[in-house]
Design a protein around this nucleic acid. Structure first.
Lengths: 130, 130
DNA sequence: ACTATAGTTCGCAACTTATGAACTATAGAA
DNA sequence: TTCTATAGTTCATAAGTTGCGAACTATAGT
Protein backbone atom coordinates (compact mmCIF):
# COMPACT_ATOMS: atom_id res chain seq x y z
CA UNK A 1 0.00 0.00 0.00
CA UNK A 2 1.38 3.32 -1.16
CA UNK A 3 1.39 6.48 0.96
CA UNK A 4 0.22 9.80 -0.49
CA UNK A 5 2.80 12.52 -0.94
CA UNK A 6 2.43 15.49 1.42
CA UNK A 7 1.09 18.85 0.22
CA UNK A 8 3.79 21.24 -0.99
CA UNK A 9 3.63 24.92 -0.03
CA UNK A 10 6.49 27.13 -1.21
CA UNK A 11 7.90 29.54 1.35
CA UNK A 12 7.14 33.17 0.59
CA UNK A 13 10.64 33.93 -0.82
CA UNK A 14 10.30 31.06 -3.28
CA UNK A 15 7.09 32.42 -4.79
CA UNK A 16 7.75 33.91 -8.25
CA UNK A 17 5.82 36.42 -10.33
CA UNK A 18 6.02 34.03 -13.30
CA UNK A 19 4.57 31.25 -11.16
CA UNK A 20 1.69 33.43 -10.01
CA UNK A 21 0.93 34.65 -13.54
CA UNK A 22 1.08 31.15 -14.93
CA UNK A 23 -1.23 29.79 -12.24
CA UNK A 24 -3.74 32.58 -12.89
CA UNK A 25 -3.49 32.38 -16.69
CA UNK A 26 -6.05 29.57 -16.68
CA UNK A 27 -9.73 30.62 -16.68
CA UNK A 28 -10.75 27.90 -14.23
CA UNK A 29 -7.95 28.74 -11.82
CA UNK A 30 -8.56 32.52 -11.78
CA UNK A 31 -12.23 31.79 -11.20
CA UNK A 32 -11.37 29.53 -8.25
CA UNK A 33 -8.85 32.00 -6.90
CA UNK A 34 -11.23 34.96 -7.27
CA UNK A 35 -13.84 33.04 -5.26
CA UNK A 36 -11.29 32.11 -2.61
CA UNK A 37 -9.83 35.59 -2.30
CA UNK A 38 -13.22 37.29 -2.36
CA UNK A 39 -15.09 35.26 0.19
CA UNK A 40 -12.52 36.03 2.07
CA UNK A 41 -10.09 33.20 2.58
CA UNK A 42 -12.08 30.02 3.01
CA UNK A 43 -13.51 27.56 0.54
CA UNK A 44 -13.80 23.85 -0.06
CA UNK A 45 -12.75 21.91 -3.13
CA UNK A 46 -15.47 19.39 -3.95
CA UNK A 47 -15.93 17.12 -6.95
CA UNK A 48 -17.57 18.40 -10.16
CA UNK A 49 -18.01 21.87 -8.70
CA UNK A 50 -19.65 24.48 -10.93
CA UNK A 51 -16.90 26.88 -11.88
CA UNK A 52 -17.70 29.54 -14.47
CA UNK A 53 -20.75 27.72 -15.95
CA UNK A 54 -18.86 24.49 -16.49
CA UNK A 55 -18.63 21.14 -14.72
CA UNK A 56 -15.02 20.22 -14.06
CA UNK A 57 -13.97 16.60 -13.47
CA UNK A 58 -12.64 16.14 -9.98
CA UNK A 59 -9.22 14.90 -11.10
CA UNK A 60 -8.82 18.10 -13.11
CA UNK A 61 -10.00 20.25 -10.21
CA UNK A 62 -7.52 18.50 -7.95
CA UNK A 63 -4.70 19.36 -10.38
CA UNK A 64 -5.87 22.97 -10.54
CA UNK A 65 -5.75 23.26 -6.76
CA UNK A 66 -2.31 21.69 -6.80
CA UNK A 67 -1.17 24.30 -9.35
CA UNK A 68 -2.51 27.14 -7.18
CA UNK A 69 -0.90 25.62 -4.08
CA UNK A 70 2.50 25.05 -5.65
CA UNK A 71 2.53 28.56 -7.11
CA UNK A 72 2.07 29.75 -3.52
CA UNK A 73 -1.35 31.30 -4.05
CA UNK A 74 -3.28 28.99 -1.79
CA UNK A 75 -2.72 27.10 1.44
CA UNK A 76 -4.49 23.73 1.66
CA UNK A 77 -5.09 21.59 4.70
CA UNK A 78 -7.10 18.52 5.36
CA UNK A 79 -10.22 18.99 7.53
CA UNK A 80 -11.43 15.46 8.02
CA UNK A 81 -12.34 14.09 4.64
CA UNK A 82 -12.47 17.52 3.02
CA UNK A 83 -9.84 20.01 1.97
CA UNK A 84 -9.67 23.51 3.34
CA UNK A 85 -8.14 26.03 0.96
CA UNK A 86 -7.24 29.57 1.98
CA UNK A 87 -5.76 32.35 -0.11
CA UNK A 88 -2.23 33.42 0.90
CA UNK A 89 -3.11 36.97 -0.16
CA UNK A 90 -1.62 38.70 2.93
CA UNK A 91 1.81 37.15 2.48
CA UNK A 92 1.84 37.81 -1.27
CA UNK A 93 0.64 41.38 -0.71
CA UNK A 94 3.73 41.90 1.45
CA UNK A 95 6.12 40.51 -1.15
CA UNK A 96 4.42 41.88 -4.30
CA UNK A 97 2.21 44.77 -3.19
CA UNK A 98 -0.76 45.44 -5.45
CA UNK A 99 -0.19 42.49 -7.76
CA UNK A 100 -3.11 40.28 -6.77
CA UNK A 101 -5.61 43.13 -6.33
CA UNK A 102 -4.77 44.36 -9.84
CA UNK A 103 -5.23 40.91 -11.36
CA UNK A 104 -8.51 40.33 -9.53
CA UNK A 105 -9.76 43.76 -10.55
CA UNK A 106 -8.90 43.11 -14.21
CA UNK A 107 -10.59 39.74 -13.97
CA UNK A 108 -13.68 41.44 -12.58
CA UNK A 109 -13.76 43.96 -15.43
CA UNK A 110 -13.47 41.18 -17.97
CA UNK A 111 -16.22 39.09 -16.36
CA UNK A 112 -18.54 42.11 -16.33
CA UNK A 113 -17.81 42.78 -20.02
CA UNK A 114 -18.48 39.16 -20.89
CA UNK A 115 -21.75 39.13 -18.95
CA UNK A 116 -22.82 42.29 -20.79
CA UNK A 117 -21.93 40.78 -24.18
CA UNK A 118 -23.85 37.59 -23.37
CA UNK A 119 -26.90 39.56 -22.28
CA UNK A 120 -26.81 41.61 -25.47
CA UNK A 121 -26.57 38.47 -27.60
CA UNK A 122 -29.58 36.92 -25.80
CA UNK A 123 -31.62 40.10 -26.24
CA UNK A 124 -30.80 40.16 -29.96
CA UNK A 125 -31.81 36.51 -30.29
CA UNK A 126 -35.12 37.17 -28.51
CA UNK A 127 -35.83 40.14 -30.80
CA UNK A 128 -35.11 38.01 -33.84
CA UNK A 129 -37.36 35.20 -32.53
CA UNK A 130 -40.23 37.45 -31.36
CA UNK B 1 7.16 30.92 -53.72
CA UNK B 2 5.08 31.25 -50.57
CA UNK B 3 3.94 34.55 -49.09
CA UNK B 4 4.36 35.26 -45.38
CA UNK B 5 1.27 35.57 -43.27
CA UNK B 6 0.49 39.09 -42.00
CA UNK B 7 1.08 40.07 -38.37
CA UNK B 8 -1.95 39.59 -36.14
CA UNK B 9 -2.88 42.24 -33.58
CA UNK B 10 -6.04 41.62 -31.55
CA UNK B 11 -8.35 44.57 -31.14
CA UNK B 12 -8.48 45.96 -27.63
CA UNK B 13 -11.82 44.26 -26.74
CA UNK B 14 -10.40 40.89 -27.70
CA UNK B 15 -7.48 41.15 -25.29
CA UNK B 16 -8.02 38.88 -22.26
CA UNK B 17 -6.54 38.91 -18.77
CA UNK B 18 -5.70 35.21 -19.15
CA UNK B 19 -3.89 35.95 -22.40
CA UNK B 20 -1.86 38.74 -20.82
CA UNK B 21 -0.96 36.64 -17.77
CA UNK B 22 0.00 33.68 -19.91
CA UNK B 23 2.18 35.81 -22.17
CA UNK B 24 3.95 37.34 -19.17
CA UNK B 25 4.29 34.04 -17.28
CA UNK B 26 7.46 33.29 -19.23
CA UNK B 27 10.71 34.75 -17.84
CA UNK B 28 12.05 35.68 -21.28
CA UNK B 29 8.80 37.36 -22.28
CA UNK B 30 8.43 39.47 -19.12
CA UNK B 31 12.04 40.52 -19.51
CA UNK B 32 11.39 41.58 -23.11
CA UNK B 33 8.16 43.31 -22.17
CA UNK B 34 9.71 45.10 -19.19
CA UNK B 35 12.42 46.47 -21.48
CA UNK B 36 9.86 47.54 -24.07
CA UNK B 37 7.52 49.19 -21.59
CA UNK B 38 10.31 50.84 -19.65
CA UNK B 39 12.28 52.40 -22.44
CA UNK B 40 9.39 53.70 -23.23
CA UNK B 41 7.67 52.10 -26.20
CA UNK B 42 10.33 51.34 -28.78
CA UNK B 43 12.73 48.46 -29.25
CA UNK B 44 14.08 46.17 -31.91
CA UNK B 45 14.02 42.39 -31.97
CA UNK B 46 17.36 41.11 -33.24
CA UNK B 47 18.77 37.61 -33.40
CA UNK B 48 20.49 36.06 -30.36
CA UNK B 49 19.75 39.11 -28.26
CA UNK B 50 20.95 39.01 -24.66
CA UNK B 51 17.84 38.73 -22.54
CA UNK B 52 18.28 38.07 -18.84
CA UNK B 53 21.85 36.70 -19.08
CA UNK B 54 20.97 34.13 -21.72
CA UNK B 55 21.37 33.84 -25.46
CA UNK B 56 18.06 33.00 -27.11
CA UNK B 57 17.91 31.42 -30.57
CA UNK B 58 16.30 33.76 -33.05
CA UNK B 59 13.49 31.36 -33.97
CA UNK B 60 12.57 31.18 -30.29
CA UNK B 61 12.75 34.96 -29.92
CA UNK B 62 10.51 35.33 -32.93
CA UNK B 63 7.92 33.04 -31.33
CA UNK B 64 8.14 35.00 -28.08
CA UNK B 65 7.44 38.24 -29.92
CA UNK B 66 4.55 36.55 -31.68
CA UNK B 67 3.14 35.45 -28.31
CA UNK B 68 3.39 39.00 -26.95
CA UNK B 69 1.84 40.40 -30.12
CA UNK B 70 -1.07 37.96 -30.25
CA UNK B 71 -1.79 38.47 -26.57
CA UNK B 72 -2.16 42.15 -27.47
CA UNK B 73 0.77 43.38 -25.40
CA UNK B 74 2.90 44.60 -28.25
CA UNK B 75 2.41 46.17 -31.67
CA UNK B 76 4.97 45.13 -34.31
CA UNK B 77 5.68 46.74 -37.64
CA UNK B 78 8.34 46.26 -40.24
CA UNK B 79 10.88 49.08 -40.55
CA UNK B 80 12.92 48.05 -43.53
CA UNK B 81 14.59 44.78 -42.69
CA UNK B 82 14.04 45.16 -38.96
CA UNK B 83 11.01 44.88 -36.73
CA UNK B 84 9.73 47.72 -34.64
CA UNK B 85 7.93 46.63 -31.48
CA UNK B 86 6.02 49.01 -29.25
CA UNK B 87 4.17 48.29 -26.04
CA UNK B 88 0.38 48.74 -26.23
CA UNK B 89 0.43 49.88 -22.59
CA UNK B 90 -1.87 52.91 -23.07
CA UNK B 91 -4.69 50.88 -24.59
CA UNK B 92 -4.38 48.13 -22.02
CA UNK B 93 -4.22 50.67 -19.20
CA UNK B 94 -7.62 51.93 -20.41
CA UNK B 95 -9.17 48.48 -20.47
CA UNK B 96 -7.46 47.00 -17.37
CA UNK B 97 -6.27 49.95 -15.28
CA UNK B 98 -3.30 49.17 -13.05
CA UNK B 99 -2.73 45.64 -14.30
CA UNK B 100 0.48 46.10 -16.26
CA UNK B 101 2.08 48.55 -13.79
CA UNK B 102 1.44 46.05 -10.97
CA UNK B 103 3.01 43.19 -12.91
CA UNK B 104 6.03 45.27 -13.92
CA UNK B 105 6.47 46.47 -10.36
CA UNK B 106 6.34 42.91 -9.01
CA UNK B 107 8.80 41.84 -11.68
CA UNK B 108 11.12 44.65 -10.61
CA UNK B 109 10.93 43.60 -6.97
CA UNK B 110 11.75 40.02 -7.90
CA UNK B 111 14.69 41.02 -10.11
CA UNK B 112 16.10 43.18 -7.33
CA UNK B 113 15.76 40.29 -4.85
CA UNK B 114 17.49 37.93 -7.24
CA UNK B 115 20.33 40.37 -7.86
CA UNK B 116 20.77 40.75 -4.10
CA UNK B 117 20.82 36.96 -3.60
CA UNK B 118 23.39 36.54 -6.38
CA UNK B 119 25.60 39.25 -4.93
CA UNK B 120 25.44 37.64 -1.49
CA UNK B 121 26.38 34.25 -2.93
CA UNK B 122 29.38 35.77 -4.73
CA UNK B 123 30.54 37.55 -1.56
CA UNK B 124 30.28 34.33 0.42
CA UNK B 125 32.30 32.48 -2.23
CA UNK B 126 35.00 35.17 -2.18
CA UNK B 127 35.19 35.00 1.64
CA UNK B 128 35.55 31.23 1.50
CA UNK B 129 38.27 31.50 -1.18
CA UNK B 130 40.24 34.37 0.42
C1' DA C 1 -15.22 -4.34 9.34
C1' DC C 2 -18.35 -1.92 5.87
C1' DT C 3 -19.98 2.08 3.33
C1' DA C 4 -19.95 6.63 1.80
C1' DT C 5 -17.61 10.74 0.66
C1' DA C 6 -13.68 13.71 -0.73
C1' DG C 7 -9.68 14.05 -2.91
C1' DT C 8 -5.17 12.11 -5.18
C1' DT C 9 -2.43 9.51 -8.41
C1' DC C 10 -1.58 7.13 -12.76
C1' DG C 11 -1.48 6.59 -17.62
C1' DC C 12 -2.26 8.13 -21.88
C1' DA C 13 -3.99 11.12 -25.59
C1' DA C 14 -4.14 15.86 -27.01
C1' DC C 15 -1.95 20.07 -26.94
C1' DT C 16 2.10 23.40 -26.45
C1' DT C 17 6.75 24.91 -26.71
C1' DA C 18 11.82 25.24 -28.08
C1' DT C 19 14.94 25.02 -31.56
C1' DG C 20 17.79 24.01 -35.93
C1' DA C 21 17.29 24.22 -40.84
C1' DA C 22 15.30 26.24 -44.61
C1' DC C 23 12.92 29.99 -46.12
C1' DT C 24 11.08 35.17 -47.08
C1' DA C 25 11.76 40.07 -47.06
C1' DT C 26 14.30 44.15 -47.43
C1' DA C 27 18.47 47.25 -48.14
C1' DG C 28 22.60 48.40 -50.21
C1' DA C 29 26.53 47.48 -53.32
C1' DA C 30 28.44 46.09 -57.72
C1' DT D 1 19.34 44.11 -62.27
C1' DT D 2 21.57 40.57 -59.92
C1' DC D 3 24.39 39.60 -55.69
C1' DT D 4 25.18 39.69 -50.78
C1' DA D 5 24.19 40.60 -46.20
C1' DT D 6 21.00 41.10 -42.48
C1' DA D 7 16.66 40.47 -39.89
C1' DG D 8 13.03 37.81 -39.04
C1' DT D 9 9.52 33.85 -40.13
C1' DT D 10 8.06 29.23 -40.94
C1' DC D 11 8.41 24.30 -40.73
C1' DA D 12 9.33 19.81 -38.65
C1' DT D 13 9.95 17.49 -34.70
C1' DA D 14 11.41 16.31 -30.15
C1' DA D 15 10.51 17.43 -25.41
C1' DG D 16 7.40 19.05 -22.09
C1' DT D 17 2.59 20.13 -20.24
C1' DT D 18 -2.32 19.44 -19.49
C1' DG D 19 -7.00 17.19 -19.13
C1' DC D 20 -9.48 13.47 -17.76
C1' DG D 21 -11.23 8.55 -16.74
C1' DA D 22 -10.11 4.70 -13.82
C1' DA D 23 -8.14 3.09 -9.87
C1' DC D 24 -6.53 4.34 -5.65
C1' DT D 25 -5.91 6.61 -0.56
C1' DA D 26 -7.80 8.83 3.37
C1' DT D 27 -11.19 9.88 6.70
C1' DA D 28 -15.91 9.73 9.10
C1' DG D 29 -19.86 7.46 10.47
C1' DT D 30 -22.31 3.37 10.86
Amino acid sequence: MKIMRPLIHPSIEDITVEGILHALSDPVRVAIYAQLAGAPCTNICSNFQQISDRSIPKSTLSQHFRALREAGLVRSERRGVEMHNTSRCMEIEQRFPGLLPAILKAHGIQSADQARATRRKQTTARKRAG
